[in-house]
Amino acid sequence: MSSTDPNRLIAWDRELRAVHHRLRDSLQIARDAVDDAGPLSADLRLFCTGFCAALDGHHRREDDTMFPELLAAHPELRDVLSQLTRDHHMLSHLLGELQRAVDAGHDAATLHQHLDGIEAVMETHFRYEEKRLLAPLADLVVEHEPRAMLGPLA
């Protein structure tokens, strides 16, 4: 239930899909910023940093809040959640590499290589997560706000 509206039951499976959609949009905005701006532009730094923060924030909220709730309700998901957590660590590393490349003023081709790698891992991760977690999430009832469970884009 949402504390802002105690009569609203959160459909966590739909919330997760919506956050994934917004993260895909954020990645495209970061790509557009690479294409439209010089490597040291403020817009490029803003959009790449914003995307990195949004994706990392989403994964931190999942690790800290959503995954423990799912594990408590569905202990059989332990291996799935462990794999997803490993993915989060890999993506965090890739995001750090992107941020370092942006800060160093690398060219558009190099930044796109970083974004391509992030996108490949992110898409595989999202598909696996949705395949394995949407059904358990559809039945999950917890006392958390969407942002607490899914991060800044929830």
Rank of each mutant, 00 (worst) to 15 (best):
G96H: 05
I29F: 11
E130Q: 08
K131E: 15
H59S: 04
E97R: 14
H106R: 12
L71D: 04
A37G: 15
D63E: 15
L98G: 10
L71G: 08
M122N: 04
H125K: 07
R78L: 07
D79Y: 02
L94I: 02
E69M: 08
L70R: 04
I29R: 14
E119M: 05
D64R: 05
R132Q: 11
D63Q: 13
R24H: 11
A101M: 11
D79P: 01
R61N: 11
P75S: 05
L81Q: 01
E129G: 01
E97C: 03
D79T: 02
L98F: 12
Y128T: 10
R17P: 00
D36Q: 14
A135C: 02
A73H: 09
L98N: 12
L94Q: 15
L98S: 11
A33G: 14
D56C: 02
F67A: 02
V19I: 05
A72V: 05
S92D: 10
R100Y: 05
I29W: 10
M122V: 01
E15I: 07
L115P: 07
D107P: 03
D56S: 07
H89R: 11
H88G: 06
A42L: 03
L77Y: 05
D107S: 03
I118Y: 12
S3Y: 08
H20I: 00
G117P: 02
A120E: 15
A135Y: 14
S3L: 11
V142C: 09
A108E: 15
Q113V: 00
D36M: 14
R127Q: 13
A101I: 05
F47P: 08
V102Q: 10
L115T: 02
A154F: 03
R100V: 10
D32E: 15
Q28F: 00
T4W: 09
H89D: 14
E76H: 04
R22G: 02
S82H: 07
G96V: 00
L77K: 05
V80R: 00
G96N: 12
A53L: 12
H144Y: 13
T85W: 08
D64A: 15
M122H: 12
L133S: 06
L81A: 01
S41G: 09
V34I: 13
P39A: 09
E130G: 06
E129S: 04
A120Y: 09
D25H: 14
A135S: 11
D116W: 01
E15P: 01
H125C: 06
A30N: 12
F47I: 04
H21Q: 13
R24P: 04
P146A: 06
A11Y: 15
P68S: 07
A101Y: 09
D56N: 06
D87E: 15
P146F: 05
T110H: 08
D64S: 13
L9A: 11
W12F: 01
E62V: 03
R61K: 14
V19H: 03
D116E: 12
V34C: 12
Q99V: 12
E62Q: 11
S2Y: 10
D87Y: 13
T65M: 13
